[in-house]
């Protein structure tokens, strides 16, 4: 959670420096949305890959359920709601800290944000590869 908060505060400061929606309220809100995506995509893809694995492992029980598309939508909504609530609550105590557009403005801070995005997306790609591997294994 400490790492997530560090990334969030750098995102918030970066939002304060941009030329649009840089007011404190919108910058804060957009930073939470960005964090939602950063955290939510790996969580969602992990659950999906795990479910595919369990379907392959237990074809006569979990496999019977399959992956209903409607359930995927419900899963996305549930994960989105839970992560957004947890993150909003987790970072709320930092709302009164004196963070300005000059805060966290070093190259290292910018690199930390880029690294967070890349790690999140790379993790997602790994999960996609695992899902494809499970699908191919089951077909051959």
């Amino acid at each position: 959670m400490r790492i997530l908060i560090k990334v969030f505060l750098r995102l918030y400061a970066a939002n304060l420096r941009r030329t649009w929606r840089q007011a404190q309220g919108t910058a804060w809100s957009d930073a939470i949305f960005t964090m939602d995506s950063l955290v939510g995509i790996p969580v969602l893809s992990s659950i999906y890959a795990m479910w595919m694995f369990l379907m392959a492992l237990f074809p006569t029980s979990i496999g019977v359920l399959g992956i209903p598309r409607g359930a995927v939508v419900v899963l996305v909504l549930m994960i989105g709601f839970i992560i957004d609530r947890l993150l909003t609550r987790g970072v709320s105590r930092y709302k009164n800290e004196s963070i300005t557009s000059d805060s966290y403005s070093t190259t290292a801070d910018s690199m930390a944000i880029i690294a967070a995005f890349l790690i999140s997306f790379t993790y997602f790609l790994i999960m996609i590869a695992i899902v494809v591997a499970i699908h191919k294994t089951l077909r051959t």
Binding site: I32, S45, L77, I128
Partner: peptide, 24 residues
């Protein structure tokens, strides 16, 4: 603002779910 922010994230989640479903 709350609806806008949440739906942008959910939309991203739907894209991820679409990619996973297609892969699966």
């Amino acid at each position: 603002q709350s609806i806008s922010r949440s739906s942008l994230f959910i939309g991203t989640g739907i894209s991820a779910a679409s990619a996973l479903y297609s892969a699966g």
